[in-house]
Amino acid sequence: MGKSIASRFKNIDIAKSVLLSVVINDDELSLEMDFFLEPAHPDYEEPGEGEDHCFHPGMLKFAGISKLSLERAVDGAGTGRRFAIHSFNIEGTRFDMDCEWGAIHLQARSIRVLTE
């Protein structure tokens, strides 16, 4: 039996994480992230000098997408390469995120969290 959705995000604070890019391929969506890891996460490292938190590269991968809505921000917010996350919700197969990049709403058969 696979891991529950909630357990996949254990010790990762998505609201404090940062979106780096959005990639769409066929029925798959990948969100390249800098995950904010909590100390209990297996990939956690003590922050270096001048750093306050542990950020770790990774991805959110969604496959078997049946519904997808991407609403790209047009007001110039987040024009850099790192996009702050304002809200994040995952419920069953539904995923919703609002961030400086824009809004992402989808329904997918598979949701994976990958840390590099």
Rank of each mutant, 00 (worst) to 15 (best):
G48N: 04
G64D: 00
F55K: 08
G102W: 01
C54D: 03
H105M: 10
S69Q: 15
N11Q: 14
Q107C: 02
A63H: 05
I65P: 00
N25F: 10
S30H: 08
A103W: 04
Q107M: 02
N25S: 12
S4K: 01
G92R: 03
A77T: 11
H41N: 08
A15D: 09
P42A: 11
T79L: 15
L68R: 08
E46L: 02
N89I: 13
N25M: 10
D96K: 12
A84Y: 08
D13F: 06
F62V: 01
F88L: 02
L114F: 04
I85P: 03
S7G: 10
E32A: 06
G64L: 01
R8Y: 11
P42E: 12
R94T: 14
V113S: 05
H105R: 11
I24T: 15
S21L: 09
T115I: 05
A108K: 00
A77I: 11
E46Q: 02
I24V: 15
F36E: 05
E32R: 08
A77N: 09
H56N: 08
D43V: 12
G58P: 04
F88M: 03
F9I: 03
K67F: 14
F35W: 05
G58R: 04
S110R: 11
A63V: 06
S69D: 15
I85K: 03
Q107I: 00
F83N: 11
P39E: 06
S4P: 01
L19C: 05
K16C: 07
F62S: 01
I14Y: 10
L20G: 07
M1P: 14
E91Q: 13
L29D: 02
S7H: 10
F55G: 08
F9G: 02
V23Q: 08
P42C: 11
H53T: 13
N11V: 12
L68Y: 07
D34C: 13
F62C: 01
F36H: 07
R112K: 13
H53S: 15
N25D: 12
D13Q: 07
R112F: 08
I111E: 00
R81S: 15
R72A: 14
L29M: 04
I90D: 00
P57R: 05
G92L: 03
E91I: 12
A40P: 09
P57C: 04
F55T: 08
I85V: 05
L20A: 09
A108I: 00
G78E: 06
Q107W: 00
S110H: 13
I111H: 00
E71C: 13
E38D: 06
S66N: 07
T93N: 03
G78C: 06
G48Q: 04
A103H: 05
T115Q: 06
H56D: 07
H105P: 08
I85D: 03
R8Q: 13
I111K: 01
A77Y: 10
H53V: 14
D13G: 07
D75I: 04
C99E: 02
I5D: 01
G80P: 14
G50D: 13
S69K: 15
N89E: 15
K10A: 09
V18M: 09
A73D: 12
G76H: 07
A40T: 10
E51I: 12
F55L: 11
D27I: 10
E100K: 05
